[in-house]
Design a protein around this nucleic acid. Structure first.
Length: 859
RNA sequence: GGGCGGUUAGCUCAGCGGUAGAGCACUUGCUCGACACGCAAGGGGUCACUGGUUCAAUCCCAGUACCGCCCACCA
């Protein structure tokens, strides 16, 4: 691997006039380690990159890692906790960040080195990190510009609050889990009336302490006369109004709903419409705060719920309880229940930015493969809520905003610029400014990846040449987090889409179809698999299983199968080498004369075409299968066997066979290099990674040769099949008699007599017009093949075999007759289809007649 | 609740208008000098179900049934 890296083949060259081919590597978490998803993702990118590099494109595969805000801060905090060190208490912000950087330096190289073990060839010299200086500058610039354009703003609204990490998180980082819960019905007493109540239902009774209204539907007759009245909130003993709002669904529960604007997203909207007070009853830990009765202050939220229920019961306010299923929001990182929480946060106006991003995919400027994922993209972007980008963390890009004492906001790229702006604003020097403490959502910097890594905001040659990258390779789970945001940012800041194609690959699951996860203990470690089967086997397996639109269920057996393929190639190469097949520089595949040589070259050309089509259409499985079946099923199984004696002996064809064998093998190795870089180079002894992709002339390929070899394969296969069916011992040498052979057949038999004899285990070949007693028969084309094996033949068995064959043919003929007998078919079907049916019928009939004759003779 | 996808050989999956395919597993036979991580020959499928379009449907359309996944505020 080092050889490759030192050679500089990975490097792009913006100065060259070669066409660019660019892939942005999805940056893995800097402190992470390689899992199967990465292995698949990396392999597919590497296959594409190697292919295009060999094709002569100026290839840039841009590598890098992500600082992964919450995840990384979490890991470091946990480590510090083991040493009884607490962020904030024992370490200030600066000291803490120092620890994080230390950790990053310490464990940051793991994943990229693991990618090297896989054989990945990105341009490592250009490796970037989302927190390095250049990318941070891009982040600041983007933030300031969006702020000045009004596309970033600060707002006080409900956010998803993580009580464990004490930060806001975005909608996407919330995971809703369906759970069994309870719904409680609670009655609120109406003010000034005796025994008059309104009943509301809730799954979160503790929030009643923050209720500021009860809402009913304006058209709900049951409650018409109650609108405007006041009710007592139990326990809190506050008076709140009954209001009319269409949000209340008469069909739902009692038709009356409690409104807690500070702790529920819907209620928040209702609260705004009715100008209700918003009572926040929680602190950052989701413990109850000073706005609740003293007995509850400082209580943990779920403990408070229990206590509330007990007290409601005592007050006779709890009038019902039912089992329900409901979706509970959890933080995807912290695993704790998320609280809607009222705070000031920064937002990106994604509803606005989404519009051009949607249009770019609708118009086909960017195309998803497989296409159906565009639906996911559309659905997500069409329904954009403002993106909450501020996080109350320390690890990340600090928001470039400074506040004056009176709260005036100065958003600039540097502190100096902010100071200058403030001084000018207030008309005095040295205004005291405080920087916003929050950092940005990790995905904010990720969204800039396609241009920030190329040097933006500078106008670099790289940016000029490689932007609008060729393709993005990623998993579907990240379309919303990353792809859509890169589209929005890319279009806004570069004026062009960030990639032409987006290939969405499958999720790697275990052999039972389970998602791999540490808690299930079913993770397969790519490094262990590389250790056991080799990187090439793993790469080839992943490539061969990467069919579009389906998950990959990976099993060791499958990898083992492809490991065997590696061994097979290895053995074929050893065989070629042992027999003195050496690549001749002057060998011209178009000039070979020996038919099997023409044939194998022609078949290679087909395989290459299919391989290329597969790669170019992102049908990696088809690409892998094309080269696999050619190599094993055609080259090894037939070609090497056909040519064995001539190769090893002396004949007029020997030299040409040696050269052809060496050349085809070399081509196979070259074509396989993108998928199996290690073994192909080891065998060939050349640095194929830097080799040119083979190009064949249009005219290469010989149909006559293919027809002839198909015939030869049929001859051998037929005889082998009959032998096996009739239990002729494998070692037994028998005679072959041919009846009704055409001149062509005779001439072919003569040419390939040795091959037929050797591969079908035949002693002699003769022609006859008669059928000897006790011969088993089969048909190839116009000729009937007879194997006189009277001493071992079992007549009943032969009768049964022939009957079975005849039966198959008759069924076939009958089916075709049905079609041909259908007037509408003859009238409407294309001529060549009809012709094909006729030809097939004739062939089947002729074979059947011959076999029927054979059957008759058996008596 | 909304959306997307799946249902093809024992298993894992390709194919997606004109004779049902692969790998693995299985059966049988092979110490035929590259390879037993191999060679050869086999068995095994009303392509989920019901209708429709078509000369022709595993493939297109509609519906049904299961199974996944994603999104969603039902108090």
């Amino acid at each position: 691997y080092e050889k490759w890296e030192k050679s500089g083949v990975f490097s792009c060259d913006p100065a060259s006039n070669k066409a660019p081919y660019t892939i942005m590597m999805p940056p893995p978490n800097v402190t992470g380690s390689l899992h199967m998803g990465h292995a698949l993702n990396t392999t597919l990118q590497d296959v594409l990159v190697r292919y295009h590099r060999m094709k002569g494109d100026d290839t840039l595969w841009q590598p890098g890692t992500d600082h992964a805000g919450i995840a990384t801060q979490m890991v470091v905090e946990r480590q510090l906790a083991e040493k009884q060190i607490v962020r904030g208490r024992d370490l200030n912000r600066e000291q803490f960040l120092e620890k994080v950087w230390e950790w990053k330096e310490h464990s940051g190289g793991t994943i990229v080195n693991q990618m090297r073990a896989l054989g990945a060839t990105p341009d490592w010299k250009r490796e970037r990190f989302t927190m390095d200086e250049g990318l941070s500058r891009a982040v600041r610039k983007v933030f300031v510009q969006l702020y000045k354009e009004g596309l970033i703003y600060r707002d006080k609204r409900l956010v998803n609050w993580d009580p464990k990490f004490h930060t806001a998180i975005s909608d996407l980082e919330v995971e809703n889990k369906e759970q069994k819960g309870k719904m409680w019905h609670i009655r609120y007493a109406v003010e000034g009336e005796i025994a008059s109540y309104i009943t509301v239902a809730t799954t979160r009774p503790e929030t009643l302490l923050g209720d500021t209204a009860v809402a009913v539907h304006p058209d709900d007759e049951r409650y018409n006369d109650m609108i405007g009245k006041m009710v007592y909130v139990p326990i809190a003993d506050r008076l709140i109004p009954i209001i009319a709002d269409e949000y209340a669904d008469p069909e739902q529960g009692s038709g009356a709903v409690k409104i807690t604007p500070a702790h529920d997203f819907n209620d928040f909207e209702v609260g705004k419409r009715h100008d209700l007070p918003m009572i926040n009853i929680l602190d950052v830990n989701a413990h109850l705060n000073e706005n609740v009765p003293e007995a509850y202050q400082g209580m943990e939220r779920f403990a408070a719920r229990k206590k509330i229920l007990v007290e409601l019961e005592e007050l006779d306010a709890l009038v019902g309880e039912e089992d329900v299923k409901n979706a509970i929001p959890y933080g995807d990182r912290s695993g704790v229940v998320i609280e809607p929480y009222l705070t000031d946060q920064w937002y990106v106006d994604t509803p606005t930015l989404a519009k051009p991003a949607l249009e770019a995919v609708r118009s086909g400027e960017t195309v998803f493969h497989p296409k159906q994922y565009e639906n996911m993209y559309f659905r997500w972007l069409e329904d954009q809520q403002p993106w909450c980008i501020s996080r109350q963390l320390w690890w990340g890009h600090q928001i470039p905003v400074w506040y004056a004492e009176d709260g005036t906001v100065f958003c600039e790229e540097t502190e100096e610029e902010a100071q200058a702006a403030a001084d000018q604003h207030f008309g005095e020097a040295g205004v005291v400014l405080t920087r916003d403490e929050d950092v940005l959502d990790t995905w904010f910097s990720s969204a800039l990846w396609p241009f920030s890594t190329l040097g933006w905001p500078d106008k670099t040659p790289e940016l000029e040449k490689y932007y609008t990258t060729s393709v993005l390779i990623t998993g579907f789970d990240i379309i919303t987090f990353w792809v859509s945001r890169m589209m929005m940012m890319g279009i806004h800041f570069m004026g062009e889409v960030p990639f032409k194609d987006v290939y969405i690959h499958a999720l790697v699951r275990d052999s039972k179809g389970q998602k791999m996860s540490k808690s299930k203990g079913n993770v397969m470690d790519p490094l262990e698999l590389i250790e056991e089967f080799g990187a090439d086997a793993l790469r080839f397996t992943l490539t061969a299983m990467a069919a579009q639109g389906r998950d990959i269920q990976l099993s060791n057996d499958r990898i083992k199968g492809y490991r065997n393929f590696c061994t097979k190639i290895w053995n074929a190469a050893r065989y070629a080498q042992m027999n003195g097949c050496e690549l001749d520089e002057n060998f011209d595949p178009a000039n070979v004369e020996y038919t099997p040589n023409q044939w194998i070259i022609s078949a290679l050309k087909d395989a290459k075409t299919n391989l290329e089509k597969g790669i170019e259409n992102y049908r990696f499985n088809e690409a892998a299968n094309a080269i696999y079946s050619f190599t094993w099923g055609t080259f090894c199984d037939w070609y090497l066997e056909f040519t064995k004696p001539l190769l090893q002996g002396e004949s007029e064809h020997t030299d040409e066979i040696k050269q052809t064998t060496a050349w085809v093998l070399d081509q196979i190795l070259t074509l396989l290099n993108p998928m199996m870089p290690f073994i192909t180079e080891e065998i060939s002894g050349k640095m194929l990674t830097a080799a040119a992709w083979p190009e064949y002339s249009e005219s290469l390929g010989n149909n006559a040769a293919r027809e002839e070899m198909d015939w030869l394969i049929a001859m051998i296969s037929q005889i082998r099949s009959v032998r096996a069916d009739m239990n002729v011992p494998a070692g037994a040498q028998i005679d072959l008699l041919i009846k009704g052979a055409s001149e062509t057949t005779k001439s072919r038999v003569q040419t390939y007599a040795e091959i037929i004899q050797r591969m079908a285990r035949i002693v002699s070949i003769d022609y006859t017009d008669e059928t000897p007693k006790g011969a088993v028969q089969t048909v190839v084309g116009e000729a009937t093949l007879m194997l006189p094996i009277a001493d071992i033949i079992d007549l009943d068995q032969e009768r049964a075999r022939l009957n079975k064959e005849i039966g198959k043919l008759e069924a076939d003929i009958q089916k075709i007759d049905q079609k041909l007998g259908n007037e509408k078919f003859v009238a409407n079907a294309p001529a060549e289809i009809i012709e094909e049916q006729r030809t097939r019928r004739e062939a089947a009939e002729s074979t059947r007649d011959k076999l029927a004759g054979a059957l008759k003779q058996l008596g």
